[in-house]
Simulated assay, not measured.
Amino acid sequence: MKIEDYVKETPKKMKEILQGADELFSEVRQQKFSKIIVTGSGTSYHSGIQSLKLMQHFLDIEVTILYPFQIDQETFPADSSDILLIGISQGGSSYSTYKAMKIAKEAGCRIASMAGTENALIDEISDYVLTVNCGEEKVGAKTKGFYATKLNLTLFTLQLARESGKLSLNEYLEEVKAIEKYINHFPFIYEQSINWVSTNKTEFASAKDIRVIGTKDIYGDTLESALKLLETMRIPVTGYEFEEFVHGIYNAIKEDSTIIILDTGEEARVKTLVTVLSEWTKNIYIIGKNTADKPQNLKADFLNHPFYRTYEYILPIQLICALVPPLNGIDPGTPKDTSFHQKLASKKI
């Protein structure tokens, strides 16, 4: 299967994850935690960053997202028994995530794992195995897994909030209904995104470097967009939140720079930024609901829910990753070095 096949499969897998939520979280939702730490690398880390505000909103406790390398013995207080650390690894075999989970376990934390496969390495150390049931993804650049991991974190949060009384049953069901609306709307955004990529694919294929700019509400998606473009197109790509970009990054923009802006409507200065940057480069592409209707822009029928828009804005980027690299002779589903993690001893193979 190709990247676009896994993207197409996403709505089906999201529905299955929704249906299995009550069973999957039956044990962990009965627990009480004073703090939750989410850790993982790459796409897993971005899933946590994108889910942070939702988790804080519904749980009303401290939630922290850390890379595995940021976790050591000094991360935890003397009594860590009411802290839950969630280790995320799409393949379930990340040694760095496993090591961070082990440190947390030794510090007295309770441990949960979210792997995209059963019987994963990170499950071995976990008190609560919360498998991300998205099915196998046999490509280097994961797409379906990103949606599924964010959904898993969301449902974990909603189930915990329901059990603790922070959400009533009706409020919980309303949130599930909102997510279902996005799942059903996914194919429409897919088709609009495919058409947009097809219109601009020649220009994307000639890009020398790319800057992705996103509003703060989709910072995790912005980072993930940059990572996926870099993995598949194999050119320099960086992603920045809007405010961070205007605090210096703009100095690097030149005539052959390509800029992709994820515009959720939350930042009033997007139009001004585009006007300024247009003096330096014509390669500016905007993805949004209310953007100017022209070929370079994707004006899509986004639903734009504050928490669940995360299932929309990343989609056109993923389709760039699927459809554009082959124009340059690159197979986006195959890593540049298929034995890289063996050489670096970074994953259990």
Rank of each mutant, 00 (worst) to 15 (best):
V274G: 01
T272Y: 09
V270S: 08
E255Q: 11
K271S: 14
V274H: 03
K254A: 12
D256T: 14
K271G: 15
A268F: 12
A252V: 15
L277G: 08
R269V: 00
N283I: 03
S257T: 15
T264A: 09
E255I: 09
Y250G: 01
K254R: 12
L277T: 07
G265A: 03
R269K: 13
W280E: 11
A268K: 14
N283C: 03
V270D: 04
L273W: 02
L262A: 06
N251F: 10
I253W: 00
L273R: 02
T272F: 11
I284F: 05
T275W: 01
K282V: 09
I261Q: 02
T281W: 02
E266K: 12
I253D: 04
I284G: 06
K282C: 00
V270N: 06
I253F: 01
E267N: 15
I260R: 04
I259E: 03
E255A: 14
V276F: 10
V276R: 05
D263M: 08
I259N: 02
I284Q: 05
E267I: 14
S278H: 08
I260M: 07
Y250R: 07
E279L: 08
I253T: 14
S278G: 15
S257G: 09
I259Q: 03
T264Q: 02
N283T: 06
R269D: 08
L273Y: 00
A252D: 11
V276H: 01
E279M: 07
K282N: 13
E279R: 09
V276K: 08
S278C: 04
I260Q: 03
V274T: 12
W280L: 12
T275N: 12
D256N: 14
I261Y: 00
D256S: 13
T275A: 10
E267K: 13
A268Q: 10
K271A: 13
Y250A: 14
N283R: 15
I284N: 03
I261S: 04
I261R: 02
K254M: 05
N251H: 08
